[in-house]
């Protein structure tokens, strides 16, 4: 916000300057001013009418990790598995201790409606976009890792080393926290997240939870699905079937 104010203040001052001064300088600045004004209000901000979510059917996950691979490729993650490497999506294998039933599922940021990471972040770097995607603004993240302490899903990773050759659409860097962005760079282009696209069984259904006619809403209305740690009351944007 403060930047926006600063900019408009500057434009104000510049307008004043244009009004009160005559000369070559004003003529030189004018074209820049015009273009600057034109650049605003062109693209539309995301709105709260949409809430992006995913419905994950775990039935076919056991022998597959294509979503993990696709995520790593799309976002330029190394795919390393050491405790200091970032993993935005991981495959979790579960075995019911009582019955012995086993299953697997992809685990990632659950894009909560009430995200604890956003509550605890001291600078507001952890934030929820109007369309429900929980992100880290890496420009203002100070790397305190409080969000990692607060996240009930272990969804976040801290970048422990300097990185090179990042993807132009997915800036990542040392000293800040990162996590699944639901491939926000793709969503803003009208594509679906890389994991959903890569899933060979179409088990990751991506869509707008706020639109009652969307495929995801229809399916969730008619079939059982679970939120992970529903007891915490965080209203997750990701739901699972078959847990």
């Amino acid at each position: 916000m403060s930047d926006t104010n600063e900019i408009s203040n500057t434009s104000e001052q510049r307008r004043q300057f244009l009004k009160t001064s005559v000369g070559a300088a004003a003529v030189a600045i004018a074209p820049g001013m015009l273009m600057f004004d034109m650049a605003h209000g062109k693209s539309e901000a995301v709105s709260g009418k949409v809430r992006w979510g995913m419905l994950i059917n775990t039935a076919n996950c056991e022998d597959c990790d294509k979503c993990v691979k696709a995520c790593n490729k799309e976002n330029g993650l190394s795919g390393g598995l050491s405790p200091t490497d970032s993993q935005w999506v991981r495959k979790v294998e579960l075995k019911d201790m009582r019955t012995g039933r086993s299953l697997a599922l992809p685990m990632m940021c659950q894009h909560c409606a009430e995200p604890p990471c956003v509550d605890v972040c001291p600078t507001g770097a952890s934030f929820k976009r109007a369309d429900g995607i929980v992100l880290v603004d890496k420009h203002i993240c100070i790397g305190c890792r409080y969000c990692m302490m607060a996240c009930p899903y272990k969804a976040r990773s801290f970048v422990h080393e300097p990185l090179h050759d990042q993807k132009p659409d997915v800036p990542r860097g040392k000293g800040v926290v990162e996590s699944c962005t639901m491939c926000v760079q793709r969503i803003d282009k009208g594509l679906q997240p890389a994991c959903a696209e890569a899933c060979p069984n179409k088990s990751i259904l991506f869509g707008n939870l706020n639109d009652p006619d969307s495929e995801i809403s229809n399916k969730m209305r008619t079939q059982a699905s679970t939120q992970v740690r529903a007891d915490l009351g965080l209203d997750t944007g990701l739901r699972y079937q078959g847990i």
């Binding site: 930047d3 900019i7 500057t10 062109k42 693209s43 976009r129 420009h139 803003d188």
Partner: peptide
């Protein structure tokens, strides 16, 4: 002014998803 406009666009992109500035 490049730093200012970059900052401005940066915030719009990250927080509001406005990517075609």
């Amino acid at each position: 002014n490049h730093m200012r406009v970059l900052f401005q666009q940066r915030d719009e992109t990250v927080h509001q998803g406005m990517r075609d500035g």
